[in-house]
């Protein structure tokens, strides 16, 4: 994958995560980064929020990591899942 495509993919996933947080009425942290944890110590997603994230990813990309048995812990791990495909 070329650099600009990777940047683009990162951008899309950042936007999707921000969109999710807004829908969930959660604050978007100013320090949101590739290494932000998605769960307790980071964005604070619980199982229902994660279910929503997985549905939004599936909707966007036609495939989501969770249904493939991969449980990403950070934004970067989501990006990596799609980068490899």
């Amino acid at each position: 994958m070329k650099d600009n495509e990777l940047n683009n993919l990162e951008g899309i996933i950042f936007e999707l995560v921000k969109d999710l947080l807004q829908k969930l009425d959660k604050e978007v942290p100013s320090c949101l980064s590739l290494d932000s944890s998605l769960y307790r110590s980071g964005l604070g997603l619980d199982s229902l929020d994660t279910a929503t994230l997985s549905a939004m990813l599936e909707n966007k990309f036609g495939l989501d990591p969770y249904s493939q048995g991969i449980f990403p812990h950070t934004v970067r791990e989501i990006v990596n899942f799609y980068k490899d495909r």
Partner: peptide, 12 residues
């Protein structure tokens, strides 16, 4: 109900 890997289903 939409099938979901985390919660079984979600409301769609």
């Amino acid at each position: 109900g939409k099938k979901n890997p985390i919660t079984g289903q979600i409301v769609a």
